[in-house]
Simulated scan of single mutants.
Amino acid sequence: MGTWITINTSFRSFFSDRIGYKSGLALNNDEMIQLLDKDDPLFDVFTSQKEELCRIRTNHIEDTFQKFLYRLGVTSQDFIGHAPTLLEMEFRNDPSRRKLLQQVLRYLGEIHFDKEKQSIFNDFNESQYYENIQIQFGSEALIIAHRLVELTKDSEEASPWDWLSARVLDWESPLELRGLFESESLDAMYGMFIDQRYLNYLSINTEKLGSIHWRQFEALTAEYFERKGYKVEIGSGRNDGGIDVRVWHPNANASAPPVQLIQCKRTKSKIDKVLVKSLWADVIDENAKGGIIVTTSSFSPGAQEICKARKYPIREVNRGKVIQWLNELRRVGRGVFMGD
């Protein structure tokens, strides 16, 4: 393992730049500190108030970088590791598969990395590699070769080093994370109402749901129904009569009433029956099929009872359900924006 000797402020700039490149999110130093564990080896590098020389182990840089990517919703785990090492550990008690691993690894080096190719993404003929592995070493080796290549891709995508440019998605430009908490803007480069990078972040940092900007909470709701295939209209945000999102069936004509009227309440307080009755009146007024209240809280007992007793077609989407939406939107987003 190596050591990097640098000025702490220069390192923080490097780290922020690489995080922005890989995640598509622009983070300031305070936002990076929030993602750090107190016992992280790099904690002092990020929190020091004075400019000073520091010695940083490269494996610590890699480990912390991978944790950041996970906590920003970019990767599915907080440790990726080195592909050959992971497989060697897995096969340590299986001599036959360990031998096959060495064969497929050696061959990968001969046809690719030994030819001054630093990355698996650099003109690697994957299908030809698998075909030759099958011919030379057999079906069991082919399975190992597939895992080796996929783990290598994962490792490179989670690497902080600038010579490994591979990333989950080629984000066009970094998006400021603070906009999720401070901005009413619905401009979304990767999404219709809210940017996919914010959805990725929230899917991991669900405790932040209650503190995002109320307009972004409305945008999240609209984005969910839009990706489900519905026609969606989001309200103006202010002076919208209390209806935040209107939803129509995909094939509805322009004059058809909405299928659902939605109110979004990013709040800690329980949803009371007054709000339920108000939404029911709007449903009647617009001849909609029903209403939905999307909240970071949940219905009060009174709200639940009035819906049941009067048979109001008003549905609750509480915090737990919104978290399910986020997990779904993250998975769907990878397909939408990566072309899976």
Rank of each mutant, 00 (worst) to 15 (best):
I292C: 05
K273V: 12
W171Y: 12
D240Y: 09
V104G: 00
G302Y: 10
D63E: 14
I212C: 07
C264G: 07
E90W: 05
E223T: 06
S127G: 07
N59H: 13
D170I: 04
K289T: 11
I292W: 01
R71E: 01
G237M: 03
S297A: 13
A83W: 00
F225R: 03
F217A: 03
E51D: 05
H213A: 02
W214S: 08
Y130W: 02
V168P: 05
R57C: 09
I144E: 03
I19S: 09
E184R: 12
D114F: 13
G339F: 01
F137S: 04
N318C: 12
T221E: 00
F181V: 05
M189K: 15
P160L: 06
W280N: 14
H213R: 03
A141F: 00
G109W: 00
E88W: 06
F225Q: 00
V322C: 02
D154A: 15
D154Q: 14
S127H: 13
E157R: 13
S127I: 14
E52F: 01
N28D: 15
R330Y: 00
Q260V: 09
P301I: 02
D63F: 11
M89Y: 08
Y198G: 10
R98W: 03
K277F: 06
T152F: 02
E172A: 13
T295S: 13
M192K: 15
G191Y: 00
R331V: 15
D240T: 08
M192N: 15
D30E: 14
G229M: 09
G73F: 02
R106P: 06
E126T: 14
I234M: 15
G81A: 09
R319N: 14
N200P: 02
R106L: 14
W171G: 00
L35A: 07
I271W: 01
M338A: 15
I323K: 08
P257Y: 01
A288F: 03
S211P: 05
L151I: 06
V247Y: 03
C264P: 10
F15A: 15
L100G: 02
P313V: 03
I33G: 04
I194A: 01
R178H: 05
D63W: 06
S269A: 14
S48E: 06
L105T: 13
S211A: 10
K99T: 06
W171V: 07
G109M: 04
I323V: 15
R266S: 11
V259C: 10
T47M: 03
L25P: 01
F65G: 12
